[in-house]
Computed example of a mutant assay.
Amino acid sequence: MPDWLSLCVLFSLLSLLTVAGLLLYSGLLCDITVQTGCPPIKKITFAYKFKEGPYKDCGQLFKESHCIGPGLPHIGVFYDDPRKVPGALCRSAVGSILSEGENKANEELLKRYETSGFNVFSFPEVTHVVTTSFPHRTFLSVLLGILRVYPRLNHYIKERRLCAHPFLEIYREGQIQFMAPLARQGDFYVPEVRPVERRLSEQDESHSDTDISGADSNSEYSSGSGVLLSDSRETSLAASSVHSVPIRDKGNRNYRGRSSGGSSFKELDWEQTGGRQDERDEQLHGDSNQKSLEAPTQEWWGVVGGEE
């Protein structure tokens, strides 16, 4: 065998081993446990920009937010199920967590975000959420986390007939923390969602109502958005009888998940990965110092799907 051919074979083997090692380190085979329990975050105040469009395009907002506050945890809130809502209408809020719990936001950072066009809002601490986490080690961790975590969340929520929304992703301390509140969901909807919800509701009034099994008794189904609309901001805790019942990652290699997401704020090139992913979910929140905005509730049978 010629020397050059031997070198090519050796180089190919080394490349394959390197890629395999990177995937394993990024979380390809890590265990995923989904459970109902306490949230990974307390009450937070965060700076965000609202976006209506495909989730895969959210990467630029993560990058912009990171440039302003590189040391801050970053957050994405996803309001729509892209399997039911066209990509152009999918809503999200992306930004940085300025403070948590009783801590106060840094005034200088707050002004920098506001100067750059970010809005500021607060989410409350709730007692019950559906949650899990995934290692955030490389830029591939974001893609792997989205592809592997959301099918498990989808299965967990559907199997237990829970009403959990919207979906949050928090990036901090080497972890991607996924959560969906099981109560006070309306408090997790930024004000920009309200006009869109009203428009969807008005459009749906011309259609006959559809009963959805497992939904709240006062809910109406919005066939255009895949959203369950209700006058109640609180959602009954169907999860209360479930407690923390973990499920283990079984693989599910054939799942068609979102294309990319979150951000590896130390290593991820957003432009390289295409930024955010093509799936996630929907609703509305109120600030701690102002009256909470009323928002419709939605029953999530899993947030991920193929966004065309």
Score class of each variant (00 low, 15 high):
Met1Glu: 11
Asp3Val: 12
Leu5Gln: 13
Leu5Tyr: 01
Ser6Ala: 15
Cys8Ala: 15
Cys8His: 07
Cys8Ser: 14
Phe11Ile: 12
Val19Asp: 06
Leu22Val: 15
Leu24Ser: 09
Tyr25Asp: 04
Ser26Cys: 07
Pro40Trp: 07
Lys42Cys: 04
Ile44Tyr: 08
Lys49Glu: 03
Tyr55Leu: 02
Lys56Phe: 14
Gly59Pro: 00
His66Gly: 02
Ile68Glu: 01
Pro73Glu: 09
Gly76Asp: 03
Gly76Glu: 01
Phe78Thr: 05
Arg83Gln: 09
Pro86Met: 01
Ala88Pro: 00
Ser92Ile: 01
Val94Ala: 05
Ile97Glu: 05
Ala105Leu: 04
Glu107Ile: 03
Leu110Gln: 08
Lys111Asn: 10
Lys111Ser: 13
Lys111Met: 09
Arg112Trp: 05
Val120Gln: 03
Val120Asp: 05
Ser122Tyr: 10
Glu125Ala: 14
Val130Asn: 01
Thr131Lys: 12
Ser133Leu: 05
Arg137Pro: 00
Phe139His: 13
Ile146Ser: 11
Pro151Leu: 01
Leu153Phe: 02
Tyr156Met: 04
Lys158Met: 08
Glu159Asp: 13
Arg160Val: 02
Arg160Ile: 05
Leu162Asp: 08
Leu162Ala: 06
Pro166Arg: 05
Glu173Asp: 15
Gln175His: 07
Ile176Lys: 04
Gln177Pro: 00
Phe178Ile: 09
Pro181Trp: 03
Ala183Asp: 12
Gln185Asn: 06
Gly186Cys: 14
Asp187Met: 09
Phe188Tyr: 10
Pro195Ala: 07
Val196Cys: 06
Glu197Arg: 11
Leu200Pro: 00
Ser201His: 13
Gln203Leu: 15
Asp204Asn: 15
Asp204Trp: 01
Glu205Leu: 14
Ser208Met: 08
Thr210Ile: 14
Thr210Ala: 05
Ile212Tyr: 04
Gly214Ile: 03
Asp216Tyr: 08
Ser217Trp: 12
Ser217Ala: 13
Asn218Gln: 13
Ser219Asn: 06
Glu220Gly: 11
Ser223Arg: 14
Ser223Ala: 13
Ser230Trp: 04
Leu237Gln: 06
Leu237Ala: 06
Ala238Phe: 06
Ala238Arg: 14
Ala238Trp: 02
Ser241His: 10
His243Pro: 15
Ser244Trp: 01
Ser244Phe: 01
Ser244Tyr: 00
Gly251Leu: 08
Phe265Val: 02
Trp270His: 11
Trp270Thr: 13
Gly274Val: 00
Asp278Tyr: 13
Arg280Leu: 12
Gly286Ile: 03
Ser288His: 11
Lys291Ile: 08
Lys291Thr: 08
Ala295Glu: 04
Pro296Gly: 09
Glu299Cys: 10
Gly305His: 09
Gly305Met: 05
Gly306Thr: 15
Glu308Trp: 13
